[in-house]
């Protein structure tokens, strides 16, 4: 039975310390940012976060020291620069454990997790020093060919952003939607799925989207929790609904350089909504 409720109630129920959470989206697109902001407002710590390509989501969570273990292939602000809080957390030895992947190996690990496989193999990691620093990566020979064996990913929870849901819990994406694998991959390998949607629609409207040739991305059988978060991916982009807010990323890049201005950012953009 899909639970449809408000963001704050769902986050406090399912995002607990030590939860292993896969965050959907990538590279300043499709990130469930409102859920990330709610996690910060509720001051939940000791999270294990998994994301294919992290940007503002991960840098904010690093900045408030909410993450104990992080798995990703890239953490930065594409086209803008470094993710300062992430970088500082590692360089200053704050205790954050970073499990680094290559993008393709991580994709394979998501896919293997969704299929219930314990491990998978990838060839593109051959020769990479990642194999030396990841004790769970291992060179194997299968039919006289070398591969790197990597573990499958099965997070406790995936949080993704989507377009719309109906009251049964089916989740829809609009026409011209792009980049959906960034959400599909974490969603299907995780034990639970929490979808933040732009809006709720009727079953009738949902069927019309389907008839236009766009199948629901997730049926109610896949989805455990739904919360309505209008413009909830902001400032990451959710095309064709809204583009990424490059100006905001540039402002953040500047403000995240020092602890003082980072605190100011948190006050202005995140905690303020707490009092509303």
């Amino acid at each position: 039975m899909t639970v449809i409720s408000n963001l704050s109630a769902i986050v406090s129920e399912i995002v607990l310390p030590n939860t292993k959470i896969a965050i959907g989206g990538a590279a300043m697109f499709l990130k469930p940012m409102e859920a990330v902001r709610e996690i910060i407002r509720q001051q939940i710590k000791d999270l294990e976060i998994i994301t294919l390509i992290g940007d503002l989501d991960i840098d904010l969570l690093c900045g408030v020291k909410a993450i104990s273990v992080l798995e990703s292939s890239f953490i930065g602000l594409p086209m803008i620069g470094m993710a300062h809080n992430f970088r500082k957390s590692i360089e200053e030895g704050s205790g954050l454990v970073f499990k680094e992947w290559s993008e393709l190996s991580m994709v394979r690990a998501f896919q293997a997790g969704a299929m219930g496989l314990p491990v998978t193999t990838v060839r593109s990691l051959l020769g990479s020093d990642l194999v030396k620093v990841r004790p769970d990566f291992e060179e194997v020979v299968i039919q006289n060919k070398k591969y790197i064996q990597v573990p499958a990913l099965n997070p406790d929870l995936a949080i993704i952003h989507a377009y719309a849901a109906d009251s049964n819990g089916n989740v829809y994406y609009p026409k011209q939607h792009i980049l959906d694998d960034f959400s599909l991959l974490p969603a299907f390998c995780s034990k639970q799925l929490f979808v933040c949607v732009e809006k709720m629609i009727s079953n009738q409207e949902g069927r019309e989207i389907v008839e236009q040739g766009h199948i629901p991305m997730f049926s109610y059988l896949d989805v455990d929790y739904i919360a309505k978060t209008p413009k909830g991916a902001w400032p990451t982009g959710f095309p064709p609904e809204y583009a990424g807010d490059m100006g905001h990323f540039m402002t953040y890049s500047g403000m995240s350089r020092s602890p003082e201005t980072f605190q100011l950012y948190l006050q202005q953009e995140i905690y303020k909504e707490d009092t509303n």
Partner: peptide
Amino acid sequence: NSVVGNYDQPKVRFPGGAAVGDIINT
């Protein structure tokens, strides 16, 4: 695209490779 210095406590932590290593081998 990973680190300068010791891997576990590097002098510089770069963002990570994303797909660059994969592209080189594919």
